[in-house]
Nucleic acid binder design. Structure first.
Lengths: 209, 209
DNA sequence: GTCTATAGTAAGATAGAC
DNA sequence: GTCTATCTTACTATAGAC
């Protein structure tokens, strides 16, 4: 593929995205290798081999193994977030106003994404990643909830942070289970159950002392 | 304490527990170093220095850095489990029979343990550990719930596994937040809130399709 | 059981030609 | 932008005397 596309047609006019191509190839190869072996086990060598690229190139474009992993994660996150916010917007448009329902709509889209892209969902939930990765994930998760329910007037109380943390980890755990499901039907069951649990947690809102 | 016990009384009759002493010193030093620096950052050298021991000795007793970390974790787990099952037994003795209430009693004791031993609770929840550690944790967590409510006639359905997973991660997340609390009072608030959320999740039992 | 000194190892990272 | 060859650097892990 790399070779075929690299062959210049007629003149030589197309140099569009030589960079983009390389990065794409590297990311795809990284997906293959990391999802099969995890971060620690995976070797940079195999990645560049599969990508038909080279170590130097990888470093040029990404800066290192960790950064490559992170780039892969960010793509994945982007897909999640776009799907989720689109779903929330759609629900809102069709008249839903209850914050819990809007949240549920977003969560469903999120979990849907875990089923498509199971491989990545599993990879990022195993706890195997570059130093500091767990922290980044937690951070991102909290932001997501915070944003998703700026609706819910969450303040900076430790109890509100807990509420967000609990919902985040609920969706996160659900995501893992969905990704581990054997069939689409099973995944659907799990998605529904997770939403149900989320509703239960949200019933009554954040705990007050 | 170590010093006091190391002082020999009268003769020199005591050689009891030279092994035990060394292991204790190593574990205590490991606690210091790991809780401050995490697993990856920590160096074996600093641990043995603080323990007044040596690298060879560490390998003799534990087998390596990872195993030392794991031994520390197991001690911590043991403390959790003893407290939790004692609490459940006590609740049962005083007439509680509702499974959800029994579970809540165990969970409360568990979270109590996260406050005492905050340092360890934080360490083990950061996601920094030897390869495969996250898996072990997840495994252990599930076992704990399973055992705690063999009461709840959970089967091997994927939905029942989800239920267990959700409760586990709820308690786990709560544990992290408790450990991060700044004051005892705040920790108590959080503990109560977590129990409340657990009750909400359990209301209605495992989801059915 | 304990220690010191040494070796292994292996992968990620870099330099510099093309 | 791309590549190859080399290096480096920090560990862990072991050997072998006491």
């Amino acid at each position: 593929m790399t070779e075929a596309q690299a062959r210049k047609p007629g003149s030589g006019s197309w140099q569009w995205g030589r960079t983009a191509q390389t990065q794409r190839a590297l990311l795809d190869a990284a997906r293959d290798v990391f999802t099969r072996q995890g971060f620690a086990e995976a070797g940079i060598a195999e990645v560049v081999e599969r990508a038909g690229s080279s170590v130097g190139s990888l470093y040029h474009h990404f800066g290192g193994k960790s950064e490559l992993f992170l780039a892969l994660w960010q793509e994945h996150q982007l897909a999640y977030e776009q799907a989720a916010s689109a779903a929330v917007a759609a629900a809102r448009k069709s008249g839903v106003t209850d914050p819990a329902e809007l949240f549920a709509a977003g969560a469903r889209a999120y979990l849907e994404g875990s089923w498509q892209r199971r491989d990545l969902a599993m990879l990022f939930s195993t706890g195997d990643g570059p130093p500091g990765f767990e922290l980044m994930k937690r951070h991102r998760g909290h932001e997501w909830i915070r944003q998703n329910d700026a609706l819910l007037r969450l303040s900076d109380t430790s109890l509100d942070r807990l509420y967000a943390a609990v919902l985040t980890s609920l969706i996160g755990e659900g995501s893992r289970e969905v990704a581990a499901a054997k069939t689409r039907a099973q995944a659907d069951e799990i998605i529904n159950a997770v939403i149900e649990y989320a509703r239960r947690v949200m019933s009554g809102g954040p705990a007050r002392h």
